[in-house]
C-alpha cells in the first residue's frame, strides 16, 4: 500500500470547522486511494461547490472543481474522454441532490464507470445553516424559522428505483467500514453512489455524531444486495438507516464502453492525437 501522505497538499489552509465530519471523510478517501495504490496523476477528483466540494483542494490528485451542482456531468465527460482515469465526483447533499438533482437522475441512467461520493450532513454548511434536500421535516434552521415543511429527499431510494448499479450508505464516523466501501465503490465497474452520513458540528444540532450512532445499523453479512425489492424496502425504511452495500446490479452496460470511438479501439480519445 502507498502512504497516504502521497496525497497531501503541503500548507493547505483547510476551511472546515474543527470536528467537521469532512475530516473523517478525507482520511478515509486518502486511505482508500493509498490501499488501492493509485498514483495521483491517474485519479481525477471532480467537485461542485460547497464545504464538501472543497475536498479536492486538499487531496493531491487531478482536480476539476467546477460549478455548484455540476460535478456529475463533468465527471461523466472526463470518463468518456479518458476511461483509463479513476474518476470520482465528490460533493455535498445540496450540490448533488438539490442544484444537481437532474444530473443525479440521468447519470444513474447512463451508468458511467465513476464513483459518486456525497457528503450528506443534512444541512447547508457553506451558506450557513439553511435546509438541504435531506434535512428532516420539521427541523428548525437558519432560514426555516418555523421548521422545514417539505419531505426530505431519499437518495438511496431514488438510486434503487433508477436501478443504479452500486448503492452504498456509510457514516463518516466509521473509518474502517467507510474505507472498505469507498474501495468497493471505486472497484465497481459502473456508477457507484456512496452517500456518507456526516455531522455538521456548526449548523446541524440534530444530526450529531451520537445521533448517527443511535440511528444507523450495519447490514448483516447475509444481506443480498442484488435483491432489488428488499433493497427498496431497506432504502425506504428511515426509522433506522442501513449502512453498507444496499443495492447492486452487476449486469448493467457501462456507458462509455458503448460509445462510437471505443467500439473497435480502446485507446482513450484523450491520447489519440498527442504529439
Amino acid at each position: 500500500m502507498f502512504e497516504t501522505k502521497l496525497y497531501d497538499i503541503p500548507d493547505a489552509d483547510i476551511a472546515w470547522c474543527p470536528g467537521c465530519g469532512n475530516f473523517g471523510i478525507i482520511n478515509e478517501l486518502k486511505t482508500a486511494l493509498a490501499q488501492l495504490e493509485f498514483e495521483p496523476h491517474r485519479v481525477v477528483l471532480v467537485s461542485g461547490i460547497g464545504q464538501a466540494a472543497k475536498m479536492p483542494q486538499y487531496v493531491k490528485v487531478n482536480m476539476f472543481n467546477g460549478l455548484h451542482g455540476r460535478s456529475l456531468p463533468a465527471a461523466v465527460a472526463i470518463k468518456m474522454v479518458n476511461p483509463e482515469l479513476t474518476v470520482i465526483a465528490e460533493s455535498g447533499d445540496g450540490c448533488t441532490y438539490g442544484e444537481g438533482g437532474n444530473h443525479f437522475i440521468h447519470t444513474i441512467r447512463k451508468n458511467p464507470d465513476i464513483t459518486n461520493i456525497v457528503h450528506d450532513n443534512q444541512i447547508y454548511g457553506l451558506t450557513k445553516g439553511q435546509a438541504s434536500p435531506t434535512t428532516a421535516r420539521g427541523q428548525i434552521t437558519s432560514l426555516q424559522f418555523d421548521g422545514v415543511y417539505v419531505d426530505p429527499f431519499n437518495p438511496i431510494a431514488v438510486a434503487v428505483a433508477l436501478d443504479a448499479s452500486f448503492v452504498v450508505r456509510t457514516f463518516s464516523g466509521n473509518f474502517d467500514l467507510t474505507v472498505e466501501l469507498i474501495k468497493m465503490a471505486i472497484n465497481h465497474k459502473g456508477y457507484a453512489l456512496i452517500d456518507i452520513l456526516q455531522p455538521c458540528v456548526t449548523f446541524n444540532k440534530v444530526n450529531t455524531y451520537q445521533w448517527y450512532r443511535d440511528n444507523t445499523y450495519i447490514l448483516p453479512d447475509n444481506y443480498d444486495p442484488t435483491d432489488r425489492q428488499q433493497a427498496f424496502k431497506i432504502a425506504t425504511d428511515t426509522s433506522k438507516l442501513a449502512l453498507g452495500v444496499i443495492y447492486k446490479n452487476p449486469n448493467k452496460p457501462v456507458f462509455e464502453e458503448q460509445l462510437a470511438p471505443y467500439k473497435t479501439d480502446k485507446t482513450p480519445i484523450a491520447y489519440r492525437n498527442l504529439k
Binding site: 476539476f64 467546477g66 456531468p73 461523466v76 465527460a77 472526463i78 474522454v81 480519445i269 484523450a270
Partner: peptide
C-alpha cells in the same frame, strides 16, 4: 459542463 470537462480531459 460536459463539453468543458471534455476539453479538460483532452478532447
Amino acid at each position: 459542463n460536459m463539453a468543458i470537462a471534455a476539453w479538460y480531459a483532452g478532447a
